[in-house]
Amino acid sequence: MRLHISHKTHYSYDQPVPYGLQQIRLTPKSCATQSIQNWTIEIEGGREECAFDDQHGNRVQLIGLAAGQREISITCSGNVDTLPTNGVVGPHSGFAPLWYYKRHTALTKPGKLIRKLAADMPDNPDTIRRLHDLSTTIREAIAYETDRTDSGTTAEEALKVGHGVCQDHAHTFVSAARLLDIPARYVSGYLMLDDRIQQEASHAWAEAYVADVGWIGFDVSNVISPDERYVRVATGLDYDEAAPISGIVFGGAAESLLVSLQVQQ
């Protein structure tokens, strides 16, 4: 399937900004599940200061705001050919070793609720089946509801309140999988929805590493493994390491954000 993606993020400030720096991970890479046909990123109101590949193999760009700027726009677009692989991404690659993906972070640190959830999982010798059961269990425990959590909500907090979004589902999955001694990571990317083209935000899911198979994706929010409607962009231990855009602005300016995202065949 060929997907066309158009994603624009526009920041505006109520007064000139003396200095700001945005870190973006918005460049998908070809892999077993996808082939990038073309991809462009355009910056208005700032410029690229440097670019590098991080420990996960993500392409990272640092964008500096022009002095005195009150607006900055980041627009990426392109065509991606995707393949139905039942979520299988394949062998491990990148600079970080597999044991690194068993490490908990502030967002994925398990508390007593996640520890109980992991301990209650049946000891199925079929690791893939066990991971699907984990995905289903988390989806039943955390109802999908927007505007109830934010980017700073931890997996334990989401499980405690019983509601969240794809980010919370992914964090809870990787936290529990690591307790089961399975390497797991967070994925940010895009999902073509069946009922609309215009979307409010990008998507997130999780991947776990299974011996003799490799990395496999699990979208807890939709209780499936990613298919050809999905485009992988960045991976990390949690949202902070795979966030599409993050940054800092000096000064006291109030910030507003407008996102326009279209994903279509």
Rank of each mutant, 00 (worst) to 15 (best):
M1I: 07
I5V: 15
I5W: 04
S6A: 13
H7I: 10
T9Y: 02
Y11F: 14
Y11G: 01
Y13N: 04
Y13A: 10
D14M: 12
G20Q: 03
R25F: 07
P28A: 15
Q37R: 14
N38H: 14
T40I: 10
R47I: 06
E49K: 13
D54I: 02
Q55L: 15
R59A: 14
V60E: 07
V60T: 11
Q61R: 15
Q61V: 10
L65D: 01
G68A: 04
R70H: 05
C76S: 11
S77R: 13
G78N: 05
T82W: 02
T85P: 00
G90T: 13
G94M: 09
L98T: 09
Y100I: 00
Y100P: 00
K102W: 02
A106F: 14
L107F: 08
K109D: 14
P110V: 09
G111T: 08
D120T: 09
P122G: 03
T127V: 15
I128W: 06
T136E: 13
I138Y: 09
R139C: 03
E140W: 12
E140N: 13
E145V: 14
R148V: 15
T154E: 13
A155F: 11
E156S: 02
G162H: 09
Q167R: 14
H169Y: 11
H171F: 04
T172G: 05
T172D: 09
F173W: 10
F173N: 02
S175D: 03
A177R: 05
A177P: 12
L179H: 09
Y186L: 10
L191R: 03
L191H: 07
I197D: 12
E200W: 04
A206Y: 10
G214A: 11
W215C: 11
I216V: 15
V220T: 15
I224K: 09
D227G: 13
D227Q: 04
D227M: 00
R232F: 07
A234K: 03
D240R: 14
G247C: 04
I248G: 04
I248N: 02
V249W: 00
F250K: 13
A254I: 15
L257G: 01
L257I: 14
L257C: 04
V259N: 06
L261D: 03
Q264V: 08
Q265N: 13
